[in-house]
């Protein structure tokens, strides 16, 4: 205060960090909401302590992991792997033309809009929910899982394909067109070289994602390791649950490493 009185210039200087009351109000609202929502779920200290106790018991029953039932385990893991490979290949093959139809720089608006709607619809349901419908349509087993993951792949990849195609340089398209090339040749000679590396990248990401989900579709009867996992949970075989989880996580991590190599090779 005394410095401000002796130097009146300093008083007019602005505070470099002004208080933002709107932001503070927002934070207060967020905290208030969190407490309200937590109270809805009866998230009390007492329940938390009981939960910790249960958690300790739970972990105690998980350890040591059950070593055995390798037949069941390897069969389930292999089926999950197969589901994800088939679903990715078919999904990518179907997503490519759909992505092309949704690219706004190559296609007229009356084609792109319905295609974009279709893509959004494929993306809006979780693969496990789609798997429920396919289990009803084609019965229990790997086929339902494959079809559910194909739908998920289309929703994800077709969108990214369309975006990749929209980002290409049109100069090469014009150059190829100027030689009198037809639409097919434009695609092969001008569009494909620009997007291939990214397509391979998206496809390997999708393979990773499908591998993750293929271990889950089994919960609703879509084949793979998921049904084994769910059954082990329901029978309280928590030591076997731990074994399955370790196997699933290792498989997913190996998948990520391999797809990382592939992306590097195609860069």
């Amino acid at each position: 205060m005394s410095t401000a009185a002796s130097q009146p210039v300093a008083a007019t200087r602005q505070n470099p960090f002004p208080v933002n009351w709107g932001a503070r109000l927002g934070w207060v609202a967020l905290v208030a909401y969190s407490f309200y929502a937590a109270s809805l779920f009866e998230l009390t200290w007492e329940r938390f302590v009981v939960g910790l106790d249960n958690g300790a018991k739970f972990i105690g029953r998980m350890l040591p992991p059950l070593l055995g039932k390798w037949d069941l385990l390897s069969k389930g893991l292999l089926e999950s792997l197969e589901i994800s490979i088939i679903a990715t290949v078919i999904g990518v093959a179907v997503a490519m033309p759909i992505g092309l139809l949704a690219a706004r720089n190559l296609m007229p608006a009356w084609v792109t809009w319905p295609t974009r709607g279709l893509i959004a619809m494929c993306r809006s349901f979780h693969p496990v929910i789609v798997a429920i419908l396919f289990v009803k349509a084609v019965g229990f087993g790997a086929l339902a899982g494959i079809m559910a993951l194909i739908v998920a792949s289309i929703g994800f990849i077709a969108k990214l394909f369309a975006e990749a195609i929209e980002e290409i340089s049109l100069k090469q398209v014009e150059a190829v067109r100027a030689t009198g090339a037809g639409f097919g040749n434009v695609l092969i000679m001008a569009v494909q070289p620009q997007v291939l590396a990214r397509f391979i990248g998206f496809s390997t990401y999708q393979l990773d994602s499908n591998l993750r989900n293929s271990t889950m579709v089994g919960i609703v009867g879509g084949g793979g390791i998921g049904s084994t996992l769910f059954t082990a949970f329901q029978r309280f075989d928590y030591d076997f649950v731990l074994t399955i989880l370790i196997c699933i996580i290792s498989m997913i991590m190996i998948g990520e490493i391999v797809s990382g190599w592939v992306r590097k090779a195609f860069q």
């Binding site: 089926e79 197969e82 490979i85 088939i86 086929l143 084949g223």
Partner: peptide, 16 residues
């Protein structure tokens, strides 16, 4: 990998 998967995956043709 694709051929191996298609050959060994369990699909029941009657369901299809």
């Amino acid at each position: 990998a694709l051929i191996q998967s298609i050959n060994s995956v369990d699909i029941i043709p009657e369901f299809l």
